[in-house]
Simulated scan of single mutants.
Amino acid sequence: MARLIHAIVTGLIGAALLHLVIVFALPQFTGGDAYSRVLALGPAGRFHLLDRQGPAEPLVPDDPFVQASVCAYDLTASPRIVTASGDPAFWSFAVFDKRANEIFSLSDRSIETGRLDAILATPAQAARLRKADPGLMGRVILVETTGSEGYAVLRSLAPHASLEPEALGFLKSARCDPFAQR
């Protein structure tokens, strides 16, 4: 019986110490998530070019041919419309929730025009948009997000130095504006 009590007490003390270590170490890990790093790049609601050497480095793959920009969004007040135009060799668009889970992605190979026109909306906002303008879905891509906060990543490819101006031009044309129903 004494061995059992000794084992239980030892287990409880070990669990308490482990709990304390986790609680005291937690502040060092918070603020290092992808969403926090995106918010640190600048104001939400606009695209920011990512510097591969800067603090956003872990947000994009280490590929010398890929340029990227990111926009944090908040859909609390209204949906956001994401647009970009240009003619890079290749581009892709992805939407992530606040916890860095990818909820949507597409590339220029999925769109006939090559131009990006997407609306980010909560399910309730998307339902209102569909009801107000049934033809809207034929003109834009509607991305429904379950949460109201997250970020969108736009990447363009420049496999040769001569193609970098088109890739950067596409990223610099990107907008992440509030959507106003017309």
Rank of each mutant, 00 (worst) to 15 (best):
21 V>L: 13
38 V>A: 07
87 D>I: 07
168 L>E: 13
76 T>V: 11
104 F>Y: 15
91 W>T: 10
61 P>R: 14
119 I>G: 03
105 S>K: 09
71 C>H: 00
17 L>Y: 00
176 C>N: 11
172 K>Q: 15
109 R>Q: 15
81 I>D: 06
93 F>A: 01
17 L>W: 01
99 R>K: 10
113 T>L: 14
14 G>L: 14
128 R>C: 00
135 G>C: 04
75 L>H: 00
181 Q>G: 05
29 F>H: 08
96 F>K: 03
138 G>D: 12
129 L>H: 07
173 S>A: 13
167 A>K: 03
127 A>R: 01
133 D>F: 00
152 A>C: 05
157 L>G: 02
34 A>T: 06
152 A>Q: 00
162 S>Y: 05
98 K>F: 03
60 V>M: 14
73 Y>L: 02
35 Y>A: 10
130 R>Y: 08
33 D>T: 09
64 P>V: 10
43 P>C: 11
16 A>M: 07
40 A>E: 08
114 G>Q: 06
5 I>Q: 12
165 P>Q: 09
39 L>V: 08
1 M>Q: 12
89 A>C: 06
18 L>D: 12
31 G>V: 05
155 R>F: 02
4 L>H: 13
3 R>L: 15
148 S>M: 03
110 S>A: 10
39 L>G: 06
143 V>F: 02
155 R>Y: 01
78 S>F: 10
30 T>I: 14
61 P>I: 12
74 D>K: 07
151 Y>M: 13
26 L>Y: 11
6 H>R: 15
54 G>H: 11
97 D>M: 01
158 A>Q: 04
